[in-house]
Computed example of a mutant assay.
Amino acid sequence: MKVRGHRVEPGEVEAALTDLPGIGQAAVVARRRADSDAQALCAFVVPAEKAAAFDEAAVRAELEQSLPSHLVPSVVRAVAALPETASGKTDRNALPNPFGEGVDEPGTVVAPSDAPGPGPDITAVTAGIWARVLHCEAAGLDPSSDFHKLGGDSLAVLEMLTALGEDVLGGASEQRFLDRLGSLSGNLTLGRVVEALEELRSTS
């Protein structure tokens, strides 16, 4: 499959996921974002028995240590089991689109509520991007984490914006976020960035 101009072998990403402690099975697919025509890499994983509570940000941070950035899924969702075809193979076509629908049991779509939600886990996605750009651990980030104090310069801010535009925002919202970011530049914390992203998604 091709995602964001890069050739992606799902098996390579799935192998990296199942190599992580606490993950028993994995399936990787490309799904279209609700607010654009862009395809994003999405992973569905089945936690191993007796595994600790699933932490999407921690999983993405681990993958960033072993995979190129274009192979790190934008979204990683834990499910009870992967859907199967009649022949017992993983039915990737039955996996939902996490950008437009909720995920409960595999193959079961949870209808979105009337109130607009933040879409994919914006905090986890943003923390993963910060970890990649700033070369730090996503698991160590919290809402008070300051981008500049963690070593982010103007080039790092541009890299973050590009990644957020691809992974969270559509093209129409990207400029609005850039305008909003100007007022946050003196106090660019993870919490304030996530708040701005969620506000833009709710009004888009």
Rank of each mutant, 00 (worst) to 15 (best):
P73W: 01
R132P: 01
D121E: 07
L197P: 00
S69M: 06
A124N: 02
V168C: 12
A58V: 09
F44G: 06
V13K: 10
V193M: 09
F147V: 11
V3G: 06
G107T: 02
E101A: 07
Q175A: 15
D35G: 12
R77E: 15
A57S: 13
A16T: 14
F147Y: 02
E159D: 13
G128Y: 02
V157T: 11
K89E: 03
G140Q: 03
L63T: 11
V125D: 01
L184P: 01
L41W: 06
L95T: 12
S87A: 12
A51M: 06
E159A: 14
H148N: 07
A58W: 10
S154I: 11
V193G: 04
E198Y: 01
L63E: 03
P68L: 05
G119T: 01
T123C: 09
K89R: 03
E101P: 02
V168D: 08
V45H: 03
L17M: 01
A52N: 08
S36I: 04
C42P: 00
G128N: 02
D55Q: 11
L134C: 01
D153F: 02
L164M: 12
A48N: 06
V109D: 04
L200Q: 07
E56C: 06
S145F: 03
D167F: 04
P10Q: 06
E198F: 01
L63A: 06
E101N: 01
R77S: 10
K149N: 10
D55Y: 15
A94D: 02
V72C: 00
A196V: 07
D153Q: 04
R192T: 13
P21R: 03
V157P: 05
T126F: 00
P120A: 15
T203D: 03
D91Q: 12
S66I: 15
G119S: 00
M160W: 10
D114Y: 03
L164D: 05
R201H: 15
E195H: 03
A163L: 12
Q65K: 13
A61F: 13
E159S: 14
R60P: 08
V133Y: 01
E174F: 10
A138H: 11
N97W: 04
R176C: 08
S204V: 15
G186F: 05
P10E: 04
E56P: 02
G191P: 00
G170L: 08
R4E: 10
A43P: 13
G165Y: 13
M1R: 11
G186Y: 03
G186M: 11
G191T: 06
F147N: 05
E166N: 14
V125C: 01
S36Q: 04
R60S: 07
S144L: 11
I129L: 04
R132I: 10
G11F: 07
R32H: 11
A43V: 14
T189A: 09
L158H: 12
A16S: 14
T123F: 09
S74D: 14
R60L: 13
